[in-house]
Each structure stands twice: as structure tokens, then as C-alpha cells.
Amino acid sequence: MSKIHVTTQVNGDAVEFLCAPDETLLDVLRDRLNLTGAKEGCGTGDCGACSVTIDGRLVASCLVLGAEVEGSAIETVEGIGTADALHPLQRHLLEHAALQCGICTPGIVVAAKALLLQNPDPSEEETRYWLAGNLCRCTGYDKIIRAVLSAASELRGENA
């Protein structure tokens, strides 16, 4: 099977890769670009652990083909915040103890960031429905929702 050449942008950097026609974006990110922050929890778009954005749109990267992202700008968890300059979402997740095993956390960070870009002041209910595609088996979601709401509040400049 001949490979497809793809030129794209990942976390602000120009990237080129070759992939098989049936290879998912998730496999490309993990196996070809060594970006293992996005996880495969199901491979069927049900768990959200592989969440990334393509041109700002939140997707399950296990349901996107690598060949589809030609000319796009992709953002993964690796592009959000660094150890010494965490995104407020990441900091609030830590401060609220909103992760236990942490496997769903990258997907939650990516999905919640996409939510706040679209809706800077979400209600608890809106946050719960937006994150309904990100499964977490450890926390019961309580602390995750609190962390996202308090990060949103900080981003709005309310508790600076």
C-alpha cells in the first residue's frame, strides 16, 4: 500500500509525514510524531482520551484519518502549557486534585480548552454536557467540573 505525503502544522510547528491511507490521525501522532499525550481508550470515538483540535475544532483523533489533515493546524495536549507556564486549566486541574490515574486528563485539557474558547462562561450543566464525550472512570467528574469552572472564572479575570 503506497503512503500518502501530508504537510500540516502541529502545535505551531510545520510537520510532514507519510501515512497509510487507512491510518488514523491518532496513530500518526503517537507512532510517527512521538506525541503520545493523546491516548487510545477505545478507538471508536466514545471515550475522548484522544481529543485534539483541528483548526480549532474538537475531534476524536481516532476517528480522523492522517491523510485528512493536509494543510490544517492541529493542537494536542503537548501544545497547551509547559511545566513552568501551565495553562490555567492545567493548573486548576492540579489544584483541585481533579485527576487520579490521569489517563483521561490530556483529553479533558484539550476538550475543556475548546469549550472555553467557544463559551468563556459556561454553566455547570453546559460544562457537563460538553465533557460528556470524555470518559473518566476515577473521579466521578466532580473535581474536574469544579476545576474547569474555576479556570474559566480565572480566564475571565474574575479571581485574579
Binding site: 495536549v77 511545566a83 501551565l86 490521569g102
Partner: peptide, 10 residues
């Protein structure tokens, strides 16, 4: 270990 988990490094 939280930092590595919120940044995707873990």
C-alpha cells in the same frame, strides 16, 4: 506526578 499528567508527558 500531576504536572506530567496535565501536560501529556506521563
Amino acid at each position: 506526578d500531576g504536572l506530567d499528567k496535565v501536560t501529556g508527558k506521563a
